[in-house]
Design a protein around this nucleic acid. Structure first.
Lengths: 237, 237
DNA sequence: CAGTGGTCTAGACCACACA
DNA sequence: GTGTGGTCTAGACCACTGC
Protein backbone atom coordinates (compact mmCIF):
# COMPACT_ATOMS: atom_id res chain seq x y z
CA UNK A 1 0.00 0.00 0.00
CA UNK A 2 1.39 3.35 -0.97
CA UNK A 3 0.80 5.75 1.88
CA UNK A 4 2.35 8.60 -0.08
CA UNK A 5 -0.58 8.56 -2.50
CA UNK A 6 -3.54 8.43 -0.17
CA UNK A 7 -6.87 7.76 -1.73
CA UNK A 8 -9.39 10.59 -1.65
CA UNK A 9 -10.44 10.69 2.00
CA UNK A 10 -14.06 10.12 2.74
CA UNK A 11 -15.99 12.94 4.27
CA UNK A 12 -16.85 12.02 7.83
CA UNK A 13 -19.66 13.39 9.95
CA UNK A 14 -16.99 15.04 12.06
CA UNK A 15 -15.73 16.87 8.97
CA UNK A 16 -19.22 18.05 8.24
CA UNK A 17 -19.70 19.27 11.80
CA UNK A 18 -16.48 21.23 11.66
CA UNK A 19 -17.36 22.76 8.31
CA UNK A 20 -20.78 23.79 9.50
CA UNK A 21 -19.38 25.26 12.71
CA UNK A 22 -16.83 27.22 10.69
CA UNK A 23 -19.53 28.70 8.50
CA UNK A 24 -21.56 29.69 11.53
CA UNK A 25 -18.55 31.31 13.16
CA UNK A 26 -17.49 33.25 10.11
CA UNK A 27 -21.09 34.33 9.55
CA UNK A 28 -21.47 32.61 6.21
CA UNK A 29 -24.54 31.33 7.99
CA UNK A 30 -25.57 34.03 10.43
CA UNK A 31 -27.90 33.41 13.37
CA UNK A 32 -31.47 32.66 12.26
CA UNK A 33 -30.26 31.73 8.80
CA UNK A 34 -31.99 28.82 7.16
CA UNK A 35 -29.30 26.48 5.92
CA UNK A 36 -29.53 24.12 2.93
CA UNK A 37 -31.34 20.86 3.31
CA UNK A 38 -29.61 17.55 3.89
CA UNK A 39 -29.72 16.39 0.30
CA UNK A 40 -28.02 19.55 -0.95
CA UNK A 41 -25.43 19.49 1.81
CA UNK A 42 -24.65 15.87 1.08
CA UNK A 43 -24.05 16.72 -2.56
CA UNK A 44 -21.89 19.70 -1.62
CA UNK A 45 -19.79 17.82 0.92
CA UNK A 46 -19.55 14.79 -1.29
CA UNK A 47 -21.00 12.36 1.18
CA UNK A 48 -24.22 10.51 1.81
CA UNK A 49 -27.26 12.04 3.35
CA UNK A 50 -26.88 9.86 6.46
CA UNK A 51 -23.52 11.41 7.16
CA UNK A 52 -24.92 14.90 6.95
CA UNK A 53 -27.85 13.82 9.06
CA UNK A 54 -25.67 12.61 11.88
CA UNK A 55 -23.63 15.80 11.87
CA UNK A 56 -26.69 18.01 11.91
CA UNK A 57 -28.46 15.91 14.50
CA UNK A 58 -25.54 16.22 16.89
CA UNK A 59 -25.25 19.95 16.34
CA UNK A 60 -28.94 20.24 17.11
CA UNK A 61 -28.49 18.21 20.30
CA UNK A 62 -25.72 20.57 21.31
CA UNK A 63 -28.07 23.48 20.87
CA UNK A 64 -26.28 25.01 17.88
CA UNK A 65 -28.97 24.29 15.32
CA UNK A 66 -32.71 24.17 15.41
CA UNK A 67 -34.32 21.59 13.17
CA UNK A 68 -37.89 21.20 12.08
CA UNK A 69 -39.47 19.02 9.50
CA UNK A 70 -40.65 20.80 6.42
CA UNK A 71 -39.29 24.13 7.70
CA UNK A 72 -35.68 23.05 7.57
CA UNK A 73 -32.63 23.72 9.70
CA UNK A 74 -31.88 27.09 11.22
CA UNK A 75 -28.85 28.51 13.02
CA UNK A 76 -29.92 29.05 16.60
CA UNK A 77 -29.74 32.76 17.40
CA UNK A 78 -29.43 32.25 21.14
CA UNK A 79 -27.35 29.15 21.57
CA UNK A 80 -29.08 27.68 24.60
CA UNK A 81 -26.04 25.60 25.25
CA UNK A 82 -26.42 22.36 27.06
CA UNK A 83 -23.75 22.03 29.66
CA UNK A 84 -22.98 18.45 30.55
CA UNK A 85 -21.87 17.74 34.05
CA UNK A 86 -20.39 14.47 35.03
CA UNK A 87 -21.79 13.45 38.40
CA UNK A 88 -19.32 10.96 39.83
CA UNK A 89 -19.36 9.01 43.04
CA UNK A 90 -17.90 10.97 45.94
CA UNK A 91 -15.20 8.37 46.25
CA UNK A 92 -14.13 8.87 42.63
CA UNK A 93 -14.37 12.62 42.93
CA UNK A 94 -12.08 12.63 45.93
CA UNK A 95 -9.63 10.11 44.56
CA UNK A 96 -9.43 11.99 41.26
CA UNK A 97 -7.76 14.84 43.14
CA UNK A 98 -5.15 12.44 44.45
CA UNK A 99 -6.53 12.64 47.97
CA UNK A 100 -7.27 9.64 50.15
CA UNK A 101 -10.98 8.92 50.49
CA UNK A 102 -12.54 7.96 53.78
CA UNK A 103 -16.16 7.34 54.69
CA UNK A 104 -17.88 7.47 58.06
CA UNK A 105 -21.42 6.74 59.16
CA UNK A 106 -22.68 9.36 61.58
CA UNK A 107 -26.14 8.13 62.41
CA UNK A 108 -28.77 5.69 61.32
CA UNK A 109 -32.41 5.36 62.28
CA UNK A 110 -35.65 3.95 60.97
CA UNK A 111 -38.71 6.12 61.42
CA UNK A 112 -42.03 7.25 60.03
CA UNK A 113 -41.46 9.60 57.12
CA UNK A 114 -41.66 13.20 58.39
CA UNK A 115 -44.28 15.38 56.72
CA UNK A 116 -41.85 17.41 54.58
CA UNK A 117 -40.40 14.20 53.16
CA UNK A 118 -43.84 12.68 52.61
CA UNK A 119 -44.80 15.75 50.65
CA UNK A 120 -41.59 15.80 48.66
CA UNK A 121 -41.67 12.13 47.72
CA UNK A 122 -45.42 11.75 47.66
CA UNK A 123 -45.41 9.03 50.32
CA UNK A 124 -48.41 7.81 52.26
CA UNK A 125 -48.74 8.60 55.93
CA UNK A 126 -47.47 5.36 57.42
CA UNK A 127 -44.40 5.12 55.18
CA UNK A 128 -41.26 4.07 56.97
CA UNK A 129 -37.91 5.44 55.93
CA UNK A 130 -34.29 4.86 56.74
CA UNK A 131 -32.50 8.06 57.66
CA UNK A 132 -28.72 8.17 57.38
CA UNK A 133 -26.15 10.84 58.08
CA UNK A 134 -22.72 10.27 56.64
CA UNK A 135 -19.46 12.06 56.14
CA UNK A 136 -17.03 11.75 53.27
CA UNK A 137 -13.44 12.82 53.81
CA UNK A 138 -10.61 13.81 51.52
CA UNK A 139 -7.28 13.35 53.27
CA UNK A 140 -9.18 13.35 56.56
CA UNK A 141 -10.67 16.76 55.89
CA UNK A 142 -14.47 16.75 55.66
CA UNK A 143 -15.44 16.93 52.01
CA UNK A 144 -19.14 16.20 51.91
CA UNK A 145 -21.92 15.71 54.41
CA UNK A 146 -24.66 13.39 53.22
CA UNK A 147 -28.16 13.54 54.64
CA UNK A 148 -30.03 10.64 53.08
CA UNK A 149 -33.55 9.22 53.29
CA UNK A 150 -34.46 5.88 51.76
CA UNK A 151 -38.03 4.72 51.17
CA UNK A 152 -38.04 1.29 52.82
CA UNK A 153 -41.07 0.14 50.87
CA UNK A 154 -39.17 0.68 47.63
CA UNK A 155 -35.96 -0.93 48.94
CA UNK A 156 -36.87 -3.49 51.63
CA UNK A 157 -33.35 -4.90 51.85
CA UNK A 158 -31.99 -1.55 52.94
CA UNK A 159 -32.93 -2.28 56.54
CA UNK A 160 -30.44 -5.13 56.68
CA UNK A 161 -27.68 -3.31 54.84
CA UNK A 162 -24.51 -2.40 56.68
CA UNK A 163 -23.56 1.19 56.04
CA UNK A 164 -20.66 1.34 58.45
CA UNK A 165 -18.04 0.89 55.75
CA UNK A 166 -19.82 1.45 52.43
CA UNK A 167 -21.70 4.67 51.69
CA UNK A 168 -25.41 4.49 50.89
CA UNK A 169 -24.88 6.02 47.49
CA UNK A 170 -22.56 3.26 46.37
CA UNK A 171 -24.77 0.64 47.97
CA UNK A 172 -27.91 1.93 46.31
CA UNK A 173 -26.27 2.23 42.91
CA UNK A 174 -25.20 -1.38 43.03
CA UNK A 175 -28.49 -2.68 44.43
CA UNK A 176 -31.37 -0.58 43.19
CA UNK A 177 -32.20 0.40 39.66
CA UNK A 178 -33.82 3.76 39.02
CA UNK A 179 -35.45 5.38 36.08
CA UNK A 180 -35.70 9.07 36.95
CA UNK A 181 -33.53 11.54 38.77
CA UNK A 182 -34.05 15.12 39.80
CA UNK A 183 -30.93 17.04 40.64
CA UNK A 184 -30.83 20.52 42.06
CA UNK A 185 -28.01 22.83 43.10
CA UNK A 186 -28.14 25.81 45.40
CA UNK A 187 -26.18 27.87 47.90
CA UNK A 188 -27.18 27.68 51.56
CA UNK A 189 -25.98 28.91 54.90
CA UNK A 190 -24.50 26.28 57.18
CA UNK A 191 -26.54 25.60 60.31
CA UNK A 192 -24.79 24.73 63.54
CA UNK A 193 -24.79 21.00 62.91
CA UNK A 194 -23.49 21.32 59.37
CA UNK A 195 -20.82 23.81 60.42
CA UNK A 196 -19.74 21.28 63.00
CA UNK A 197 -19.50 18.37 60.62
CA UNK A 198 -17.84 20.27 57.80
CA UNK A 199 -15.57 22.34 60.05
CA UNK A 200 -17.11 25.60 58.88
CA UNK A 201 -18.06 28.80 60.61
CA UNK A 202 -21.75 29.05 61.40
CA UNK A 203 -23.78 30.46 58.49
CA UNK A 204 -20.87 30.06 56.12
CA UNK A 205 -22.06 29.44 52.53
CA UNK A 206 -22.37 25.80 51.52
CA UNK A 207 -22.72 24.41 48.02
CA UNK A 208 -25.65 22.02 48.16
CA UNK A 209 -26.86 19.30 45.84
CA UNK A 210 -30.22 17.63 46.29
CA UNK A 211 -30.97 14.45 44.46
CA UNK A 212 -34.22 12.54 44.30
CA UNK A 213 -34.56 9.28 42.42
CA UNK A 214 -37.55 7.23 41.36
CA UNK A 215 -38.11 3.80 39.94
CA UNK A 216 -41.10 4.25 37.65
CA UNK A 217 -43.14 6.68 39.78
CA UNK A 218 -42.06 4.99 42.98
CA UNK A 219 -39.82 7.25 45.05
CA UNK A 220 -36.61 5.52 46.08
CA UNK A 221 -34.42 8.01 47.88
CA UNK A 222 -33.77 11.65 48.62
CA UNK A 223 -30.33 12.95 49.48
CA UNK A 224 -29.02 16.35 50.42
CA UNK A 225 -25.29 16.62 49.83
CA UNK A 226 -23.48 19.53 51.44
CA UNK A 227 -19.98 20.27 50.27
CA UNK A 228 -17.10 21.67 52.23
CA UNK A 229 -15.54 25.09 51.84
CA UNK A 230 -14.41 26.12 48.39
CA UNK A 231 -16.17 23.40 46.46
CA UNK A 232 -16.67 24.07 42.75
CA UNK A 233 -18.45 22.18 40.08
CA UNK A 234 -16.77 22.79 36.77
CA UNK A 235 -17.28 21.79 33.18
CA UNK A 236 -15.83 22.67 29.78
CA UNK A 237 -17.36 22.39 26.37
CA UNK B 1 -56.02 0.49 4.16
CA UNK B 2 -56.94 -1.68 7.07
CA UNK B 3 -55.69 -0.07 10.26
CA UNK B 4 -57.07 -2.92 12.32
CA UNK B 5 -54.45 -5.26 10.90
CA UNK B 6 -51.26 -3.29 11.30
CA UNK B 7 -48.17 -4.61 9.64
CA UNK B 8 -45.46 -6.01 11.89
CA UNK B 9 -43.90 -2.91 13.44
CA UNK B 10 -40.26 -2.31 12.78
CA UNK B 11 -37.92 -2.33 15.73
CA UNK B 12 -36.68 1.18 16.34
CA UNK B 13 -33.52 2.24 18.10
CA UNK B 14 -35.78 3.58 20.86
CA UNK B 15 -37.28 0.12 21.29
CA UNK B 16 -33.82 -1.34 21.58
CA UNK B 17 -32.80 1.26 24.16
CA UNK B 18 -35.85 0.49 26.27
CA UNK B 19 -35.29 -3.26 26.05
CA UNK B 20 -31.68 -2.92 27.05
CA UNK B 21 -32.53 -0.61 29.94
CA UNK B 22 -35.16 -3.08 31.13
CA UNK B 23 -32.65 -5.91 31.13
CA UNK B 24 -30.20 -3.82 33.10
CA UNK B 25 -32.86 -2.85 35.61
CA UNK B 26 -34.13 -6.37 36.15
CA UNK B 27 -30.55 -7.63 36.42
CA UNK B 28 -30.72 -9.86 33.39
CA UNK B 29 -27.56 -7.95 32.63
CA UNK B 30 -26.04 -7.06 35.98
CA UNK B 31 -23.40 -4.35 36.42
CA UNK B 32 -20.07 -5.27 34.83
CA UNK B 33 -21.78 -7.85 32.63
CA UNK B 34 -20.50 -8.13 29.11
CA UNK B 35 -23.49 -7.97 26.82
CA UNK B 36 -23.81 -9.58 23.38
CA UNK B 37 -22.24 -7.92 20.41
CA UNK B 38 -24.13 -5.80 17.92
CA UNK B 39 -24.57 -8.50 15.30
CA UNK B 40 -26.15 -10.89 17.80
CA UNK B 41 -28.37 -8.21 19.28
CA UNK B 42 -29.52 -7.17 15.83
CA UNK B 43 -30.50 -10.73 15.08
CA UNK B 44 -32.28 -11.07 18.42
CA UNK B 45 -34.19 -7.80 18.13
CA UNK B 46 -34.95 -8.39 14.49
CA UNK B 47 -33.40 -5.21 13.22
CA UNK B 48 -30.29 -4.07 11.44
CA UNK B 49 -26.96 -3.63 13.09
CA UNK B 50 -27.12 0.16 12.53
CA UNK B 51 -30.22 0.34 14.66
CA UNK B 52 -28.59 -1.53 17.50
CA UNK B 53 -25.51 0.60 17.08
CA UNK B 54 -27.41 3.82 17.51
CA UNK B 55 -29.19 2.54 20.61
CA UNK B 56 -25.98 1.36 22.21
CA UNK B 57 -24.06 4.46 21.24
CA UNK B 58 -26.62 6.68 22.94
CA UNK B 59 -26.68 4.54 26.07
CA UNK B 60 -22.91 4.82 26.19
CA UNK B 61 -23.13 8.60 25.82
CA UNK B 62 -25.55 8.64 28.71
CA UNK B 63 -23.05 6.77 30.82
CA UNK B 64 -25.09 3.56 31.11
CA UNK B 65 -22.81 1.40 29.02
CA UNK B 66 -19.09 1.26 28.49
CA UNK B 67 -17.97 0.27 25.03
CA UNK B 68 -14.59 -0.81 23.75
CA UNK B 69 -13.54 -2.28 20.48
CA UNK B 70 -12.61 -5.90 20.58
CA UNK B 71 -13.58 -6.15 24.25
CA UNK B 72 -17.25 -5.47 23.68
CA UNK B 73 -19.95 -3.61 25.60
CA UNK B 74 -20.22 -3.74 29.37
CA UNK B 75 -22.89 -2.51 31.79
CA UNK B 76 -21.34 0.34 33.72
CA UNK B 77 -21.12 -0.62 37.40
CA UNK B 78 -21.05 2.95 38.64
CA UNK B 79 -23.30 4.88 36.32
CA UNK B 80 -21.33 8.10 36.16
CA UNK B 81 -24.40 9.81 34.93
CA UNK B 82 -24.04 12.85 32.79
CA UNK B 83 -26.42 15.53 33.93
CA UNK B 84 -27.33 17.94 31.22
CA UNK B 85 -28.09 21.48 32.24
CA UNK B 86 -29.68 23.92 29.91
CA UNK B 87 -27.97 27.25 30.30
CA UNK B 88 -30.43 29.82 29.00
CA UNK B 89 -30.17 33.57 28.64
CA UNK B 90 -31.12 35.40 31.83
CA UNK B 91 -33.95 37.02 29.94
CA UNK B 92 -35.39 33.65 28.96
CA UNK B 93 -34.85 32.24 32.41
CA UNK B 94 -36.77 35.09 33.99
CA UNK B 95 -39.53 35.16 31.44
CA UNK B 96 -39.98 31.39 31.72
CA UNK B 97 -41.21 31.92 35.27
CA UNK B 98 -43.80 34.36 34.00
CA UNK B 99 -42.03 37.32 35.54
CA UNK B 100 -41.25 40.53 33.71
CA UNK B 101 -37.59 40.88 32.78
CA UNK B 102 -35.73 44.14 33.17
CA UNK B 103 -32.09 44.95 32.56
CA UNK B 104 -29.98 47.77 33.94
CA UNK B 105 -26.40 48.83 33.32
CA UNK B 106 -24.68 49.74 36.56
CA UNK B 107 -21.24 50.77 35.42
CA UNK B 108 -18.95 50.68 32.43
CA UNK B 109 -15.27 51.39 32.13
CA UNK B 110 -12.32 50.62 29.90
CA UNK B 111 -9.08 49.83 31.69
CA UNK B 112 -5.86 47.84 31.71
CA UNK B 113 -6.59 44.25 32.62
CA UNK B 114 -5.98 43.78 36.35
CA UNK B 115 -3.41 41.15 37.26
CA UNK B 116 -5.90 38.52 38.45
CA UNK B 117 -7.75 38.77 35.14
CA UNK B 118 -4.52 38.69 33.13
CA UNK B 119 -3.58 35.51 34.92
CA UNK B 120 -6.99 33.96 34.48
CA UNK B 121 -7.31 34.72 30.78
CA UNK B 122 -3.63 34.55 29.96
CA UNK B 123 -3.54 38.14 28.68
CA UNK B 124 -0.42 40.21 28.08
CA UNK B 125 0.39 43.11 30.34
CA UNK B 126 -0.93 45.96 28.25
CA UNK B 127 -4.24 44.28 27.42
CA UNK B 128 -7.21 46.59 27.62
CA UNK B 129 -10.56 45.28 28.79
CA UNK B 130 -14.09 46.55 29.06
CA UNK B 131 -15.51 46.09 32.52
CA UNK B 132 -19.28 46.07 32.94
CA UNK B 133 -21.54 45.70 35.97
CA UNK B 134 -25.14 44.91 35.23
CA UNK B 135 -28.31 43.92 37.00
CA UNK B 136 -31.06 41.66 35.79
CA UNK B 137 -34.47 41.95 37.41
CA UNK B 138 -37.48 39.66 37.65
CA UNK B 139 -40.60 41.68 38.39
CA UNK B 140 -38.33 44.48 39.58
CA UNK B 141 -36.68 42.28 42.16
CA UNK B 142 -32.95 41.79 41.58
CA UNK B 143 -32.40 38.37 40.06
CA UNK B 144 -28.81 38.32 38.92
CA UNK B 145 -25.80 40.57 39.23
CA UNK B 146 -23.40 40.33 36.32
CA UNK B 147 -19.75 41.29 36.64
CA UNK B 148 -18.30 41.04 33.15
CA UNK B 149 -14.91 41.59 31.57
CA UNK B 150 -14.43 41.63 27.81
CA UNK B 151 -11.06 41.35 26.08
CA UNK B 152 -11.11 44.34 23.72
CA UNK B 153 -8.44 42.89 21.48
CA UNK B 154 -10.65 39.89 20.80
CA UNK B 155 -13.79 42.00 20.32
CA UNK B 156 -12.78 45.47 19.07
CA UNK B 157 -16.33 46.55 18.34
CA UNK B 158 -17.31 46.14 21.97
CA UNK B 159 -15.99 49.61 22.75
CA UNK B 160 -18.65 51.18 20.55
CA UNK B 161 -21.48 48.94 21.72
CA UNK B 162 -24.31 50.42 23.72
CA UNK B 163 -25.06 48.31 26.77
CA UNK B 164 -27.64 50.61 28.29
CA UNK B 165 -30.59 48.59 27.02
CA UNK B 166 -29.16 45.25 25.89
CA UNK B 167 -27.17 43.03 28.23
CA UNK B 168 -23.60 42.14 27.28
CA UNK B 169 -24.40 38.46 27.23
CA UNK B 170 -27.05 38.84 24.56
CA UNK B 171 -24.86 41.28 22.63
CA UNK B 172 -21.85 38.98 22.70
CA UNK B 173 -23.86 35.94 21.71
CA UNK B 174 -25.17 37.71 18.65
CA UNK B 175 -21.85 39.29 17.71
CA UNK B 176 -18.98 37.05 18.69
CA UNK B 177 -18.51 33.40 17.94
CA UNK B 178 -16.73 31.23 20.46
CA UNK B 179 -15.32 27.76 20.45
CA UNK B 180 -14.70 26.90 24.10
CA UNK B 181 -16.46 27.58 27.36
CA UNK B 182 -15.55 26.89 30.93
CA UNK B 183 -18.39 27.01 33.38
CA UNK B 184 -18.07 26.74 37.12
CA UNK B 185 -20.57 26.86 39.98
CA UNK B 186 -19.94 27.59 43.61
CA UNK B 187 -21.44 29.05 46.77
CA UNK B 188 -20.03 32.33 48.06
CA UNK B 189 -20.73 34.87 50.75
CA UNK B 190 -22.12 38.19 49.57
CA UNK B 191 -19.79 41.11 50.07
CA UNK B 192 -21.19 44.53 50.90
CA UNK B 193 -21.56 45.62 47.28
CA UNK B 194 -23.24 42.41 46.19
CA UNK B 195 -25.57 42.44 49.19
CA UNK B 196 -26.52 45.95 48.19
CA UNK B 197 -27.24 45.12 44.57
CA UNK B 198 -29.09 41.88 45.25
CA UNK B 199 -30.93 43.13 48.34
CA UNK B 200 -29.29 40.54 50.58
CA UNK B 201 -27.92 40.60 54.07
CA UNK B 202 -24.14 40.92 54.19
CA UNK B 203 -22.37 37.56 53.94
CA UNK B 204 -25.57 35.82 52.92
CA UNK B 205 -24.85 32.80 50.67
CA UNK B 206 -24.94 33.49 46.94
CA UNK B 207 -25.11 30.96 44.15
CA UNK B 208 -22.37 31.92 41.73
CA UNK B 209 -21.66 30.96 38.14
CA UNK B 210 -18.40 31.87 36.45
CA UNK B 211 -18.10 31.57 32.72
CA UNK B 212 -15.03 32.04 30.56
CA UNK B 213 -15.18 31.78 26.78
CA UNK B 214 -12.48 31.51 24.13
CA UNK B 215 -12.35 31.73 20.38
CA UNK B 216 -9.62 29.28 19.44
CA UNK B 217 -7.16 29.96 22.29
CA UNK B 218 -8.00 33.64 22.29
CA UNK B 219 -9.81 34.64 25.47
CA UNK B 220 -13.00 36.56 24.77
CA UNK B 221 -14.77 37.23 28.02
CA UNK B 222 -15.04 36.34 31.68
CA UNK B 223 -18.25 36.78 33.63
CA UNK B 224 -19.19 36.20 37.23
CA UNK B 225 -22.92 35.82 37.65
CA UNK B 226 -24.32 36.11 41.17
CA UNK B 227 -27.87 34.99 41.74
CA UNK B 228 -30.40 36.36 44.19
CA UNK B 229 -31.72 34.60 47.26
CA UNK B 230 -33.16 31.15 46.83
CA UNK B 231 -31.86 30.49 43.34
CA UNK B 232 -31.75 26.84 42.27
CA UNK B 233 -30.44 25.16 39.22
CA UNK B 234 -32.44 22.04 38.52
CA UNK B 235 -32.44 19.25 36.02
CA UNK B 236 -34.20 15.93 35.50
CA UNK B 237 -33.12 12.89 33.59
C1' DC C 1 -4.44 -12.28 13.92
C1' DA C 2 -9.25 -11.88 14.87
C1' DG C 3 -13.25 -9.83 17.13
C1' DT C 4 -15.45 -5.82 18.31
C1' DG C 5 -17.34 -1.32 17.69
C1' DG C 6 -17.14 3.00 14.41
C1' DT C 7 -18.56 4.75 10.33
C1' DC C 8 -20.08 5.42 5.42
C1' DT C 9 -23.26 4.36 1.60
C1' DA C 10 -27.36 4.27 -1.36
C1' DG C 11 -31.75 3.68 -1.17
C1' DA C 12 -36.22 3.56 0.94
C1' DC C 13 -40.32 4.77 3.56
C1' DC C 14 -42.40 7.54 6.94
C1' DA C 15 -44.01 11.59 9.99
C1' DC C 16 -44.59 15.98 10.52
C1' DA C 17 -45.83 20.73 9.41
C1' DC C 18 -46.84 24.21 6.52
C1' DA C 19 -49.46 26.03 2.44
C1' DG D 1 -50.13 18.24 -1.39
C1' DT D 2 -45.25 18.67 -0.75
C1' DG D 3 -40.78 19.43 1.26
C1' DT D 4 -38.24 18.61 5.16
C1' DG D 5 -36.04 15.89 8.62
C1' DG D 6 -36.29 11.04 11.13
C1' DT D 7 -35.26 6.52 10.72
C1' DC D 8 -34.33 1.73 9.00
C1' DT D 9 -31.78 -1.44 5.97
C1' DA D 10 -28.13 -4.35 4.08
C1' DG D 11 -23.81 -4.31 3.10
C1' DA D 12 -19.12 -2.71 3.30
C1' DC D 13 -14.64 -1.22 5.01
C1' DC D 14 -11.94 0.44 8.70
C1' DA D 15 -9.66 1.14 13.47
C1' DC D 16 -8.67 -0.23 17.63
C1' DT D 17 -7.15 -3.70 20.94
C1' DG D 18 -6.35 -7.84 23.19
C1' DC D 19 -4.42 -12.34 22.38
Amino acid sequence: MNKATPAAEKTTYQNVKQSVLRRIRDRTWAPDTLIPNEVDLAREFGCSRSTVNRAMRELAEEGILDRKRKTGTRVNATPVRNAKFVIPLVRDEVEATGAAYRYALVSREVLQAPPWLRARLNLCEESRVLHLNCLHFANNAPFQFEDRWVNIMAVPTVEQADFSTLGPNEWLLSQVPFTDVELSFSANAADARLADFLALNPSEPVFTAERTTWLKDRPVTFARLSFGRGYRMTTRY
